[in-house]
Design a protein around this nucleic acid. Structure first.
Lengths: 119, 119
DNA sequence: CGTTGACCTGGAGTGCGCTCCAGGTGAAAG
DNA sequence: CTTTCACCTGGAGCGCACTCCAGGTCAACG
C-alpha cells in the first residue's frame, strides 16, 4: 500500500496542487490522509479515483455531477445500479459530443476545400 | 437580398439576442445594419457568418481566435491562405478532441462493464 | 389612440472551475 | 545550523463567455 506525496500526485494525475486541494475542499476527494506535519499523503485509491475524475472531467462532466457520483461511490455497493445509470447517461453525452464534433468537422473541411478552390 | 430581424436570427442561429449584441460589441460581427428606429436588421451574409461562428464555437474555438479569423475575413482575399492555415490548425484540435473523447469513452465503457460484472 | 411587445443602450452581474496570494510550519540538504 | 523547499490554510481573484438589468424608444395591431 504505497502512499503519494502531493508532488507525486501532481505528476501522476496532471492536476495542479491547487486543484487537488480544491477537489478536497468541495468534497470531491474524501478527506485525504495527513502525516504528522499535516501534509497530505494520498493513497493508491485516491490516485485511482483521481484517474476517474480526470476521465469524467475531460469528457465534460460538470463538477456537480461528479459530486453526485462521488456520493454514490461513498454510498456503497447498493448504489452500483445508480452509478451505472449515471455513467450510461454521461456516455450518451460523450457520444453526442463526438457525433457533433464530427459533423462540425465536416463543415470545416468543406470550408477549407472552398478556400482552396478559390486560390 | 432578404433581411432578418433580431428575433429571426435568434431563431435561425440559436444564439441569444444578448449573445448577438455581445458579438457585435466585441467586433466578431461587423456593425450590423439598422432600420430608421435603430433596430438591427441582419443580412443574409450576417446569418451565414453566424453559422460559421456557431460551427467554430461549438468545436471549442475561443472567441480570441474567432476574432483573428474575423480580421482575416475582413482583410480580403489575400488572407485566404492564412484562413486556411487557421482552419487547418483548428481542424487538428478538433481531431484531437474526438480522439481524446473516444479514448476516454473506452475507459467509461470498461468501468460500466466492471460495475455490471459485480452486480 | 392606446397598449403591448420587440428592441435599444451601457454597464453590472453570473457561473464555472480553477488559480493565486499572504503568511506561516516543518523537514531535509549542505 | 541555516537555508531552502515542499507544503499548509483561508480567502480573494481571475478568465471566459455570456446573461441580466434598468430605463428607455418605436412600431404594429385592433
Amino acid at each position: 500500500m504505497s502512499v503519494y506525496t502531493p508532488a507525486e500526485v501532481v505528476e501522476e494525475t496532471g492536476f495542479s496542487l491547487d486543484t487537488l486541494r480544491y477537489y478536497e475542499k468541495i468534497g470531491l476527494l474524501e478527506r485525504v490522509e495527513r502525516n504528522a506535519a499535516g501534509q497530505r499523503r494520498f493513497s493508491e485509491e485516491d490516485v485511482g479515483w483521481l484517474g476517474m475524475i480526470r476521465c469524467l472531467r475531460d469528457t465534460g462532466m460538470p463538477i456537480a455531477m461528479l459530486l453526485r457520483f462521488a456520493e454514490l461511490v461513498r454510498g456503497g455497493d447498493d448504489t452500483i445500479p445508480d452509478r451505472i445509470r449515471l455513467l450510461e447517461e454521461h456516455d450518451r453525452q460523450v457520444q453526442a459530443q463526438i457525433a457533433n464534433l464530427a459533423e462540425r468537422q465536416n463543415y470545416i473541411h468543406r470550408k477549407i476545400s472552398y478556400y482552396r478552390s478559390v486560390l
